[in-house]
Amino acid sequence: MWNLAYLLKTVIFLYLIQEISSHFEFTNLKCTSDDEKFSEFEYCQLKSVNRTYKYAHVKVKLYQTPITKIKVNVALLKRFNGYRPFMYNITFDACRFLRSVYSSTPDLTIKYFYQFVETTSNMNHTCPFDHDLEIVLPISIVDNQLTKVLPFPGGDYMLETQWFAYDVRRAIMKVFGTVSYI
């Protein structure tokens, strides 16, 4: 038989969980080109439409196209007396992954990160890449991925991506943000 006090505590707990929600906000964006003869960032900025709506805008000019061999390292870091590794640090063959997204079952961890830019960039096709790359990433997509799809605990985060073409690092992008509870 259910204890009435236990049942009441459970109902209150479930009610409180529904009331707690979190929110993501961009705090900074840094882009560095390691080889400016290969590529350079034309845009790397956060745009603010109003006090609550921001988006990241990144455009990379590619000078040696077509690019047929790309690797990406994605590392998620959380700030604990400096940024420390948190959950993910993955290096993958981007061309192979893009082929698998459209043909077979892709790696779900990589697909999670790909869903940030899948609909907001021109990188949503298989290799080769023979054009400049552009991402316009609204806060709503990042907020949904980090608070609803896979909820993250509150805190300051950095997503660092390192881009390799032909096994040489060409660029680094760092996206900084905060997950806070409302």
Rank of each mutant, 00 (worst) to 15 (best):
Y114N: 04
Y114S: 06
R96T: 01
G82K: 06
G154H: 00
V60W: 03
L16C: 12
G177Y: 11
M87Q: 15
S104E: 11
I139R: 08
E36R: 12
T161F: 10
L14K: 06
T10I: 08
F116C: 02
L29M: 08
W2Y: 05
R84H: 13
M87S: 10
F26C: 06
R79M: 10
I141D: 14
L14W: 14
D143V: 01
A171N: 06
D107K: 00
F92T: 02
L150Y: 12
K59Y: 07
I12Q: 12
S103I: 13
F38R: 10
P151Y: 02
N50W: 11
F86Y: 14
V60T: 07
K111Y: 15
E36P: 06
L8G: 08
T27E: 13
T68W: 05
I67W: 12
L7V: 10
F38Q: 13
D35G: 12
M173K: 05
N81G: 11
Q64G: 02
L77Y: 13
G154E: 15
G154N: 09
Y112G: 02
D167H: 12
S21W: 09
L7A: 11
K61L: 03
K61M: 05
S103Q: 14
K47H: 14
I12K: 04
S140F: 13
Y157F: 11
L150C: 03
Y181L: 11
A165P: 01
S104L: 03
D167A: 07
S121G: 00
T32W: 00
M173W: 02
S103R: 14
N122L: 07
L76M: 11
S104M: 03
I67E: 09
T105H: 14
W163R: 01
S103V: 13
L77Q: 15
Y112T: 02
Q45S: 10
S48G: 07
D34F: 13
A75K: 11
K47A: 06
K9Q: 07
F113R: 02
Y102V: 01
D132L: 09
H23P: 04
V72H: 00
M158T: 00
D93Q: 12
L46H: 10
Y6W: 07
F26D: 11
Y6Q: 09
H23A: 03
F80C: 02
Q64A: 05
D156L: 04
G155N: 15
F26V: 03
L16F: 15
V142H: 06
N122H: 08
F92R: 01
P66D: 03
K174A: 01
R96E: 10
C95G: 14
V175M: 13
K59W: 08
S33E: 12
I182Q: 05
F113H: 03
F86V: 00
L4M: 07
V117C: 15
C95M: 13
K30W: 12
P106C: 12
Y181E: 12
R170T: 05
S33R: 09
R84F: 10
T91K: 13
C44I: 03
Y181F: 07
I67H: 10
L14F: 14
Y53W: 08
Y43L: 07
L137N: 11
L4C: 04
E42Q: 09
E118S: 13
D143W: 01
N144S: 13
S103C: 08
A94T: 06
Q115V: 00
Q145W: 04
N50D: 15
V179P: 11
V60M: 13
Q45H: 05
K59F: 06
G82M: 06
T109P: 01
F176L: 02
K69H: 05
